[in-house]
Structure formats: C-alpha cells, structure tokens
Nucleic acid binder design. Structure first.
Lengths: 251, 251
DNA sequence: CGACGAATTGAACCTATTCAAAGGGTGTGG
DNA sequence: CCACACCCTTTGAATAGGTTCAATTCGTCG
C-alpha cells in the first residue's frame, strides 16, 4: 500500500468573499459574453451589478422563488440543483467563476426552476433582469454569446440525459469524472485533482444513483488504480481507462 | 368490455409535402421568433429558405454531420434523437409545425449532436446558418425570441433529467403522456387522443426504458382505465390519475 | 385472406437500491 | 497537542424494479 494523501484539495480563495472594484471589473471581463466590450462599457455595466458573499451551503435562491435576477459567479463554486417531490435531490451542474445562472428571460411571474446553493465560500454578482435586458438591447454581441452558451448547455443536458438513459452506473460516474476533470482538473503530485469539494452524495446526485452505489463504484475504481479518492475529493490517475469505461472508446 | 376503436389517428396532412408559396409564408409567420415581422420582411426571409419533403423514417441529418443549416418544420412530425454507442437510441423530442431544429450557432467545424428523422410525411424549410445569422443581426427581436425558446428547452431537458433520475418507470411514462397530450392532444370520441404516431419503442426511448416495460406499464394503465391505446396510438382517459402517478399531485 | 410488424406476456436473471452497521478522516475543544 | 465527536464513507446482505430473451397474440396493410 502506498502512502495515501489525506486532504489534497487547496481551493485558493480570495479570502475576502467581498470582491474589490478591480476584481469585479476583472471578473466581468472574464465573463464570456462581456468579453470584447471596452473598459468604459464594462465600468458602466459594473455599476448595474450588486455583489454578495455566501458561506458554504448557503442558498442564493430556491426553486420556485420569483425569478428576478441574473447572477454571475465571481469567486467560489455554486451548485445548481432540483429537488424532486420524492425527496431525491438532483445536481444539474457545478459553476465556477465567470459562469452565469438564474433568470435570462423577462417573462412576467416567472420563477426559478432550480435552486442555487454555495458549495464553497463564494462571491456572486447579481443584476436585475430588467437591467440585464437593457444591456442585451444595447450590445447585440452579448445576446448572441448568451444564446451560444445557452445552446451549448442544452446540448450538455441532452448528453447527460442520453447517458443516464443508456449507460450503467459505472459508465456514468466515469464520464462525470472526465467532465469534471476537464473543468476543474489541476495537475499535482497525486494526479489530476478535481479542484472542488465533491462527496459521494454529490456524485450520486449528478449521475442518478445513490451515495452507497457511488461509493462502491469509486472504491472499485481506486482498487483498479484509475482514481485516487478520499473524503470530499477525487483525483484522476488513469484517464484513458476511465474514458473506455465511459463508453467513449480510446484503447 | 366496451368496443375498442381500431385506428383512431387521423393526422390531417397537406397531402402534397411540397408546400405552396402561400403556405410557406403562413408557416413562417407561425414560427414564434418570426411573429411580429411585417409581411415584407417575411417575404424577404422566405426567399432565404429552401423546402424539402421527407417520407416517414427518412433522415434529415445524422448526428455527426457538418452543422450547416437551421430547419423549420412546416408540416408533419420530426423526431430528434441520439444514438448511444451501446446501440440504445434515445428520443429527445418530437417536433411539430412551427418548431425549429438543427444548428443555431455559427461555430466553425461544428456538427449536429443529434439525428433528425421524419416520423410522418413531412415538409421542412431550411436556411443556411450564415443566412440565418444575417437575419439575427438585422432583427434583434428575433434573437431574443430564439434565446427564450432555447432557454425553455434547456429547462425542459433538465426536467426530463430530473424525472429519469428520481421517478420510477410508471411515473415517467405517465408524465410523458401528459406532456405529449398537452402538445398533440385532440379531443375526440375516444378521449384526449395524442395526434402523432407513437409506438411502445418510442415511449421507451423517451423515458429511458425498454419497449417491453413500456408495454407492461401501458397495458396496466389501460386496465386501470387511465388510457386507451393500440398499435401506434394512445389516448388519455383519466388525466388526473395520470398526473398523480407522475408525481405532480392533483387529488 | 395472408403476412409482416407491433404489442403482449411469461419467467429467469441482474443491476442497483435499501437498510443497517462499522470504519475513518477532520476539525474542534479541552 | 491530543482526544473526542461528528459526519462522510465503506461494506454487507436482502430485496425490488427493470431487463432480457423467447414465445404468442393481435392489428394493419397489401
């Protein structure tokens, strides 16, 4: 048995979860659909945003709340989830800085279809839908970009649906680990470490299974030398084999 | 035992699956994101579209083909599906006149993530992505509408994911029947008839199960007096009870 | 009427869930 | 700095829900 590391995750927070003005401008510039705007435009847009900090597990909004704002992750990790009536929670996505969530369209009496919850300490910027639509009208390039991102999220959702429908649990978990490592992976001495807190329950809620089954599968992956894992963390060791299990053929 | 009807579906085709000029304009006017444009604008837009007829089971494009066009259903029904590597097909959606599919974004070297196949005799209008983007640039209201539709499709996809993840087969099928009857339902002497060919295999491919299980569940629904069904057709008899089974509570 | 394809039904099998109990890392307070 | 307590994780065994394969029935179209 090799020495197993204990707690390798090191999410480098800006300790203040209140963001400085400079940081806010920097974040907004990093948001894909604001990229390309001038510094002046960004400053004007910045004025329309408010910021708010959240502690881990704090909820930004609940599914069913009146949909009034669009949010941008400035720093930290946000979970997007749905609570099914059967009590089983479903985790749709984990968002990181630069990504948006909340409401896009200004339909009257609309409500959020999902719940947004902080996974880590987080700083979030928010803008009212009305103000956001003023931006959309003023900067046509922004609308196109938002459309593009939304379309690609739709594809990703269809992809997940297909997998849940056609792959066994092993394959779905293998696939999830690949996707998360593409998004959050950071190479270190353990392997390709997924830089976000990730428990068995989270894995289960993203792959449509139970924490127990997720644990069994991941334990097996570890025994087979595919991953290294512990409490709330996972690192990928043998990416190619995982891809094969995920049904993405590559060997 | 009451007299069971044999073949109640009567999809009223425009027998010509080539559309007349008047019909084309009428269809384009019915497309949600072109609503509100002037007759002149529509005529100009109409010139950018080509039309094409398809027989049942004919494929409009295959998943993986180069994504070059956006399509609008003029008449008939289109299946959007994904072929998983395991050979199990997944049915994402059934589209009817006025709905669009294909490619929205003009990313280079993009390919269709799904396959589009005619479910009935169909007339489809198509436009190149480049031309479509010229329209998007010229008519800002169109972009916003496309964005709105795409966002609501994303919500629907997340909804399906949640259900597949949290509901047993019965609930998923009950739910599918509700959704399809909202979209295709037509009241007649049998009940609320779903006006689209729909076999057990289709139901299975939309709910992540097998044709055999779909058959068992639907047989039970029929015995319980919730639906009336036969070869390639379904009619809803007791909508409220179905909703209860679907977990949408209503009694 | 005959034939093909769809739908039904049965029975064995299997994957994943459920419930329960034990093990282990992390962080807190003494 | 160590020890304890909490919660996450692991593991086991029984069960259930769905799949699979195969055979039969039934509807629809030629």
């Amino acid at each position: 048995m090799s020495t197993r590391r204990k707690s390798p995750i090191e999410i480098d927070f800006t300790e203040t979860h209140m963001c400085s003005i400079n940081m806010r401008l920097q974040i907004l510039g990093k948001v894909p659909f604001f990229a390309g705007l001038t510094h002046g435009d960004l400053e004007e847009i910045n004025n329309l945003f408010r910021e708010h900090g959240y502690e881990p597990d704090e909820v930004i909004y609940f599914s069913g709340d009146a949909a009034t704002h669009l949010f941008v992750v400035a720093d930290g990790r946000i979970k997007l989830m749905r609570h099914s009536l059967s009590g089983k929670d479903v985790l749709l996505d984990i968002l990181t800085s630069g990504e948006f969530f909340g409401s896009i369209s200004n339909v009257e009496n609309d409500s959020y279809p999902d719940t947004a919850q902080a996974l880590t300490q987080t700083c979030v910027l928010s803008i009212s839908i009305n103000d956001f639509h003023r931006i959309l009208e003023k900067y046509p390039s922004v609308v196109l970009k938002v459309l593009e991102i939304t379309a690609s999220r739709l594809q990703a959702a269809n992809e997940r649906f297909e997998q849940l429908s056609a792959l066994p649990v092993e394959g779905r978990i293998a696939n999830l680990l690949i996707v998360l490592s593409d998004k959050f992976g950071e190479l270190n001495e353990v392997g390709l470490l997924i830089q976000t807190p990730l428990g068995r329950e989270d894995v289960a809620a993203m792959t449509g299974t139970t924490p127990e089954t997720a644990s069994r599968v991941m334990s097996q992956f570890q025994k087979d030398g595919l991953i290294q894992t512990g409490r709330q963390w996972v690192a990928i060791i043998d990416r190619d084999s995982l891809k094969k299990i995920a049904g993405l053929e590559s060997g």
